[in-house]
């Protein structure tokens, strides 16, 4: 995979895909902006995200506080910037975890088939029979309100999708000529799965990863919104929406609107990114 990605034509190819596909370019730009904001939050934020200043509470957007201040006088823009850090980190960690585990389990099941495959398949069916968000809530409630538990819960509820996806993608390729050729060249089962099959299904999994990042962010925010995730003073989009919701009837719309928009933008970008990503990663699209 590294060889395929390392070739100089990748950038040019990406440019070509983006020129033909403005939606992907927009999504890629939005994602890059989010990541940059998250990384540079301490430098971009003009105020301390948790320092309260009750005298300055509930101010509408102004030159000093672009997105206004909340009920404790904290700058909403600064909280949003720091919130991006946490939300993206949770989403990225959860999705990486479920991708690595799910793709490996699914790929091995798809390649070897047999009893293990059937057992894993039934387990996935059982897992998917639960309302997944409720399952995540139960897990966080049982394990405790900590960031890593949100990551685990989100990873577990995404796992079945990766297992199924990787399993199917590998199962349709396991009879391919190049897999037989790999066996004739002296490659064992594990090497074929990891060195041949996984890199080949990666472009298709990339779509899934991108979609999942969006879900994972919503999931983390949703848990926090319900009081099951990150706790109060920490800047997190879900908490900001939850806290701001109490004041919306009083006309203080900016408390909810900006974190809501941030969530929407993040989810939208990740969802749109998927298709473009597949085109960029597939070497056959490059000529």
């Amino acid at each position: 995979m590294s060889a395929a990605l390392g070739r100089p034509s990748l950038l040019r190819h990406a440019g070509w895909v983006l020129r033909g596909n403005l939606v992907t370019a927009f999504a890629l730009g939005g994602t890059a902006l989010l990541v940059l904001v998250a990384l540079l939050a301490p430098w971009l934020a003009a105020y301390d995200p948790i320092a309260t200043n009750v005298a300055n509470a509930m101010r509408p957007p102004s030159a000093a506080h672009w997105f206004g201040t909340d009920q404790l006088g904290r700058d909403i823009l600064s909280r949003l910037l720091y919130g991006a850090r946490l939300d993206l980190a949770i989403a990225a960690a959860a999705v990486s975890l479920s991708f690595v585990l799910g793709a490996m389990i699914g790929a091995f099941c798809g390649y070897h088939g047999g009893r293990l495959d059937r057992a894993v398949g039934r387990f996935v069916d059982v897992l998917m029979a639960f309302p997944l968000f409720v399952l995540a809530m139960a897990m966080v409630a049982a394990l405790g309100n900590q960031v890593q538990n949100i990551v685990y819960a989100t990873a577990v509820i995404n796992l079945p999708f990766y297992i199924r996806f990787a399993r199917t993608e590998v199962a349709v390729r396991r009879q391919a000529g190049w897999v037989e050729a790999a066996r004739a060249s002296g490659n064992g089962g594990a090497r074929i799965v990891l060195g041949f099959l996984l890199p080949n299904i990666l472009p298709n999994v990339a779509v899934q990863i991108s979609l999942n990042l969006g879900w994972a962010i919503l999931n983390a925010a949703g848990l926090s919104f319900l009081g099951l995730g990150v706790t109060a003073p920490t800047p997190e989009w879900g908490i900001m929406v939850a806290e701001g919701a109490r004041f919306i009837s009083a006309g203080h719309w900016w408390l909810v609107a900006f974190p809501g928009l941030a969530l929407m933008l993040a989810v939208l970008c990740f969802n749109l990114l998927g298709d473009g990503l597949r085109d960029i990663l597939d070497p056959r699209m490059r000529t």
Binding site: M1, A4, A176, G177, W178, E180, A181, A182, A184, G186, F196, P199, N200, P283, R284
Partner: peptide, 18 residues
């Protein structure tokens, strides 16, 4: 394994695309 080798029918399909 190295003594018995095979050339497949569809050369394109028998090469790993990556």
């Amino acid at each position: 394994r190295s003594q018995v080798q095979i050339v497949f029918q569809d050369a394109g399909e028998s090469l790993n695309p990556r």
